[in-house]
Nucleic acid binder design. Structure first.
Lengths: 213, 213
DNA sequence: GTCTATATCTCGATAGAC
DNA sequence: GTCTATCGAGATATAGAC
């Protein structure tokens, strides 16, 4: 299903560039380091991606393309709104914990003002004809109308859901230190994280059943 | 009540350094720029704070000292646990929205691996004999025992609360673009953010009353 | 404590041969 | 397309006069 956008060599460069950007940030990243990891020399790096800004932008674009395509697949499946939201949390956290640096990459970019991410999202929206956040707005709105969830503020609820899902991963090294999570406990910690968020959402949003529950 | 830790001059430097770190990040920040804004020359900057790493660390320490002292004041006041949590969200969001860059500063530091923030927190914990996150653990634990809130996972619930509170501010420029928040709407948006989080928490955590509501 | 001048170095980018 | 060598900007940090 995935369209091949880049040649193998360019893709290899992007993958290594992303690792270095995750590790050091846009300004801390070194072109030399990226070239080394991609096993090419620095001149070739500039040959393929012109300059650092371009490489950074293409790296973000690569990340978002994969993320959006992943979410897109399930979002159209028929289900209840709460089911969709639960599944979103499930898939989203899986994606982030498998690509543990990506939350940090995006967080840093946003903290930098998010100019590049805005540009990438604009392009991607046009290309893929899908803009995940707005699709979720629809889902929540409809669930309210159908009486499936309480009459909450749509946008703020969505921000809360994403914030809960992503925050731990942004601050992972610090979080793990504060809560004394040992390496061998990480997997179960993330599983519990998921369950707790979904439980929180279900109790926080679901229309109160009158009498029972 | 606040102890004076730094001379006026050093404090002035720290305040300006924080602004530049917020704007450009640790690696993007320029010592020259900080010196200019603090109205001293670059040599004096090194005279007072040795090098960039030290200045960065002291900047973070300054931020956390103020943040912790602010939260410390109310946390001892007697109240219900849900009341404390609600008030925490209230004060926390006020602090962040008044110091809009600080969330970004901390987010970036955490994305960088959080080594410095860990060190600062360790020192501060010793000094102030208070470590806010652990105090909140106690609050939530007691509320569970008292039957005030449901039997949720304590740590994950706390992470969720902080994540909901802080996430919008980390990604503010991008968020405002996605949700089309105009400058004149920001104040009411933040007010609504606060209300929605508190509402979410209360519905998500409170023990279900049997029969009514 | 203050300031000018400068040493030293690192990095992004490119020229130019192959 | 590939690679070596190098340029030149711009950064941190400091020496040394006052």
């Amino acid at each position: 299903m995935r369209r091949k956008i880049y040649s193998d060599k360019k893709e290899k460069i992007l993958i290594e560039a992303i690792k270095v950007f995750i590790d050091k940030g846009k300004y801390g990243a070194r072109m030399q380091k990226i070239a080394d990891k991609a096993k090419i020399n620095k001149a070739m790096l500039h040959y393929y991606f012109t300059d650092k800004d371009t490489l950074y932008e293409k790296s973000l674009e690569y990340i978002f393309t994969n993320l959006f395509l992943r979410v897109k697949d399930f979002i159209d499946e028929e289900e209840t709104a709460l089911g969709k939201i639960n599944k979103f949390v499930d898939i989203y956290i899986d994606f982030i914990s498998e690509n543990i640096g990506i939350a940090r990459f995006i967080a840093r970019e946003m903290a930098d003002g998010g100019q590049v991410v805005k540009k990438v999202m604009r392009n991607l929206t046009r290309q893929e004809n899908i803009f995940i956040p707005l699709r979720f707005i629809d889902i929540i709105d409809r669930a309210k109308k159908d009486g499936e969830i309480r009459n909450v503020d749509t946008v703020h609820t969505l921000i809360s859901i994403i914030g809960m899902s992503v925050f731990y991963f942004i601050g992972k090294p610090v979080m793990d230190a504060i809560w004394k999570i040992k390496p061998e406990e990480q997997e179960s910690f993330i599983r519990a994280r998921k369950e707790c968020i979904i439980d929180f959402i279900n109790h926080g949003l679901r229309m109160q059943a009158r009498g029972n529950n």
